[in-house]
Write a protein that binds this DNA or RNA. Sequence first.
DNA 1: TGTTATT
Length: 446
Amino acid sequence: MKEPDAIKLFVGQIPRHLEEKDLKPIFEQFGRIFELTVIKDKYTGLHKGCAFLTYCARDSALKAQSALHEQKTLPGMNRPIQVKPADSESRGEDRKLFVGMLGKQQTDEDVRKMFEPFGTIDECTVLRGPDGTSKGCAFVKFQTHAEAQAAINTLHSSRTLPGASSSLVVKFADTEKERGLRRMQQVATQLGMFSPIALQFGAYSAYTQALMQQQAALVAAHSAYLSPMATMAAVQMQHMAAINANGLIATPITPSSGTSTPPAIAATPVSAIPAALGVNGYSPVPTQPTGQPAPDALYPNGVHPYPAQSPAAPVDPLQQAYAGMQHYTAAYPAAYSLVAPAFPQPPALQQQQQREGPDGCNIFIYHLPQEFTDSEILQMFVPFGHVISAKVFVDRATNQSKCFGFVSFDNPASAQAAIQAMNGFQIGMKRLKVQLKRPKDANRPY
DNA sequence: TGTTATT
């Protein structure tokens, strides 16, 4: 009946006594009319002096627009008739592009040059933060949808700009509706929940907010009782026990002697352990970063007799790791049964934006097992203090961990404790490198 | 060594 690319027109400056039947003859000369509706007040039903008009053919609309818009004045009106695409039709959304993965230094002009070959540009703006720094993305509005589409076809993914982490993104900009959804999803993410609940309530209301907060609280409370130490216990256990073929930690620790003997470990399903630790290649025998066997090699089960806290200068990192963990293993032996009681730290956020803490509170962790995710490093470091943020870097293309990450605490002492305890901590063939995060402007120390 | 951003 009507062409898929038909245009809905807004017609303005119509005398209020003219109804559809009166208007039809005026517009029919440009083509067959699909729909013509005089706009009336929603409540009073009063004629508002304008109408929506859709022709069956797109071409008819274009003809009517060029012949009538601002060209004639209907009897009794003192301004010329308006005939143009309705706001609802386009408002520019279907010809406006979102451009991502720009370099931070690209200006409006740079972007404009890149898009000019595809058509006439109505506007072109690089998005900038309050301080004027580029957000690495821009909006480009063409005069037509076709021009915009052509730019997408040619430019999207076509190149990687200097300073960008991935190839150029060129797509139609979000509509207003999509922006609303996006906002809601962001709120939901911050509250650590999945989006469907938020989406069920189309409107963003106080009620929705309250509900989401309540849900978030439930999730947090639940997680506090849900074996938060499984991963950490597993990390420790790989220092202490071999994993046998049937998938159970079958080797109980026999206290050799001394003060730093961990509690015995009950048989524990390997499924509770991160995949990294359930495979071969994770030696329970620590080695020095130099590659020399550590003194611990004398104690193949990983338990060594000397005191956990030694004032002597060169201390085996593993021993320090033990020392760092001792405080909670002692307090929470039940961690080994993977049914830990409520955790002493404030409940960690389930999800968060990557966030830096204050100076001296952010640590960088390298040589993470490939399989470690945010939640594994969170659990690894939560014994040392309140973790604001725990983030493993993931390659966006492959979704693979880059084997490094960040943990932010809310105070420098926790960060120092974590570094002391975990730097050099051996997992499998690798030892963690744990340092304060390098400030942005610092030169590479190595 | 905090990554993809939506006027």
